[in-house]
Amino acid sequence: MGMISAPFPAMPGHHEQALVAAVQAGLPLVPRPFAAIADRIGLTEAEVIGRLRDLRDRGVFKRLGVVVRHRELGYDANAMVVWDIPDVQVSKLGTCLARFPFVTLCYRRPRRPPVWPYNLFTMIHGRDRNQVLARISELVDSCALDAVPHLALFSRRRFKQCGARYQPPCVHTTEHPR
């Protein structure tokens, strides 16, 4: 079986864990959301804000804001495009691909020969399949990827989507693209 990436140094303190648990499902939509969270976990509003700033500054969050569901906005097509890039070039090409605004994730992952030779994963969204395919062509041209084997794995059904969570609840869905 494969390896699992090691955790970063643990986030200390049960207060921070309680805070992460309290915000992972989203802020309450009330005028003073941090005060509402503070009440739930036994901190003050100022402490909640201070600790969230600290988590943000330490890069624990990628971002903090409105999280939209692309499909509900008419971004019906998404493809996980996987590339088999020579190891010595993967950082350079990954950086090139990550610059495009329609590339929403760009990760290096391990190959799993013989069944899985691909080591770079990009998520590409578009309004429809043709737009996604056009964007892949743009990437191939812009980053000189003509010789790099790649595959576009379009999504079909979405069985579940929610943010990374460490506790329930999480919404289950089964949705079919048109």
Partner: peptide, 18 residues
């Protein structure tokens, strides 16, 4: 349309994932 208003965690910063 909106999943939530809140943080998007960086992978493997609180817990581990694959």
């Amino acid at each position: 349309v909106v999943s939530r208003v809140g943080p998007v965690f960086r992978p493997n910063r609180v817990g581990v994932s694959t």
